[in-house]
């Protein structure tokens, strides 16, 4: 009799667990995204040519996260249509001190002067860099609310409550063509999402991964933008 009751309780708990797992896998946080490009000049890339992904200078107030830059670099270099991506620290070191936060050109009109610096064109050619992609923007938490409390004791612990927050990831990538010393155009990604964290004993996070989505969207669009040989 007791054994039958035990197995019934176990079955009910298993059902409940499966139900929660299924519900959490079906429920995903809301994300809206917009990725767009503006072309100013013709692009295209030849064999052996590559790109370098850089963050705009923090001297100009830019706050782009290093992990986002690494993410875009990885994503642009990955896949069958992946481009050759030169690691930005390698590029910055090779061209020291002309791509430091203080000295990097802020606009394409600084490129002719940069190319006249001793050894700069040779080093860029040696690295095989055709495009410099300047990333600007960041991810911010713009709203949030709710409350949750957790407690733990010798017999176990648990949480109860509901929390939510909204993140906005806004990034822009400006593409500079070092062969023509011109601005090829820009690609922007604007991703907004609300994450939820309901908890009845166990917290079930429903996270809106806005930064990851912006990274993927921006990288995919950048690949198309650079490879495409459409005119302006």
């Amino acid at each position: 009799m007791t054994r039958a009751l035990d197995s019934e309780i176990r079955l009910a708990l298993t059902r409940k667990f499966i139900l929660i797992a299924a519900a959490s896998s079906m429920l995903t946080a809301c994300v809206t995204s917009r990725v767009e490009g503006v072309r100013e000049n013709k692009t295209g890339i030849a064999e052996g040519e590559g790109v370098v992904i850089m963050a705009k200078s923090y001297h100009l107030g830019n706050e782009t996260e290093a992990k986002f830059i690494a993410c875009v670099g990885d994503a642009v270099g990955r896949g069958s249509a992946g481009l050759r991506v030169v690691p930005n620290n390698e590029f910055v070191d090779a061209l020291f001190p002309w791509f430091e936060p203080r000295t990097a050109p802020a606009e394409t009109k600084g490129l002719p002067d940069l190319m006249q610096r001793p050894g700069v064109p040779e080093k860029i050619a040696e690295k095989g860099v055709r495009y410099v992609v300047w990333l600007d923007g960041d991810t911010d938490r713009v709203a949030g609310g709710g409350s949750m409390s957790c407690a733990a004791g010798p017999g176990g612990g648990g949480c109860f409550g509901f929390a939510w927050w909204q993140n906005d990831s806004k990034y822009q990538a400006s593409v500079w063509d070092l062969s023509g010393l011109e601005n090829a155009g820009s690609v922007s990604a604007d991703v907004s999402g609300t994450s939820f964290l309901p908890a009845i004993v166990i917290p079930i996070p429903l996270i809106a991964r806005t930064q990851a989505k912006a990274c993927k969207g921006l990288a995919d669009q950048l690949k198309l933008f650079i490879v495409s040989d459409e005119g302006a």
């Binding site: 996260e65 290093a66 992990k67 020291f96 001190p97 430091e100 936060p101 203080r102 000295t103």
Partner: peptide
């Protein structure tokens, strides 16, 4: 968030020294 606390401070110091070098050169 990128490098962890110690590494972030170390990196900020190195960047400041590189900044000084760039400024001196320029």
């Amino acid at each position: 968030t990128t490098f962890g606390s110690d590494e972030a401070l170390r990196r900020a110091a190195v960047l400041a020294m590189r900044d000084a070098a760039a400024l001196v050169i320029l």
